[in-house]
């Protein structure tokens, strides 16, 4: 077996483009997914029977169907109903929806794990639920969700490779394209594996940093 570094160097441009698109797709989908996730969590907790059931059904549906199948449904089945979306749009929708379902459960669990006394203390002070949510619950929820959100972000980055099957020109798609031209799977798959690993490692490091710097109260110690 040979490992020809020149193949990678010769094709750095499409690799860089693909990598940038992977990062871009994930950077947009993750926050959208989280905003939807918070909304879904609140619907499930306080939305009344109809909205809570809708939110629960949405989460169950998205978590229980393979991501690849969801992508196929959006890309191949929706056009049968007259809705034809470009691969990139399908990619954004599918990844955001995927992230929202997991984020909803992460956020819901986190809100429930803030002690009831926190909400009671807010009520006792005369605060309304919206203020309690914004000033008391969600800031504490951040502490609970950061570690689990790291898993979600990493999962999202990895699932984004699936979008190559519907020709979204992200890293895996570009890699397959290069291999098709150069017949060098060893070099190209190795380098994209390293790129994915580097990206997810960066995310882990970043969230660890956030855990410390967004939550000074968790690391503050008694000083007497």
């Amino acid at each position: 077996m040979q490992f020809d570094v020149a193949v990678i160097l010769d094709n750095w441009q499409p690799l860089a483009d693909g990598f940038a698109r992977t990062i871009g797709i994930c950077t947009v989908s993750l926050p959208i997914g989280f905003i939807l996730g918070v909304a879904l969590a609140l619907l499930r907790l306080h939305g009344g029977l109809v909205f809570a059931t809708f939110a629960a059904a949405y989460v169950e549906l998205l978590r229980n169907i393979p991501f690849l199948t969801q992508v196929f449904l959006l890309y191949f089945v929706l056009p049968e109903f007259g809705l034809r979306l470009s691969p990139l749009v399908v990619g954004f929708i599918a990844l955001s929806a995927y992230a929202s379902a997991y984020a909803a459960e992460i956020v819901r669990g986190a809100i429930l794990s803030v002690p009831a006394g926190q909400t009671e203390a807010g009520y006792a002070l005369g605060l309304g639920y919206a203020t309690i949510l914004r000033r008391i619950l969600l800031p504490q929820v951040l502490g609970y969700i950061l570690p689990t959100s790291t898993n979600l972000a990493i999962g999202l980055i990895k699932e984004s490779a699936v979008l190559s099957v519907i020709t979204v020109p992200e890293l895996t798609y570009e890699a397959q394209d290069i291999i098709g031209r150069t017949f060098s799977p060893v070099e190209i798959f190795t380098i994209i594996a390293l790129l994915y690993w580097g990206l997810t490692a960066l995310v882990s490091t970043l969230t660890k940093w956030l855990e410390i710097h967004l939550q000074p109260y968790l690391t503050a110690r008694r000083t007497g």
């Binding site: 006394g117 203390a121 006792a124 800031p139 504490q140």
Partner: peptide, 11 residues
């Protein structure tokens, strides 16, 4: 109101 477990906002 003052609670048994204080219920201060930790953050």
């Amino acid at each position: 109101m003052v609670f048994q477990n204080f219920n201060l906002f930790p953050h």
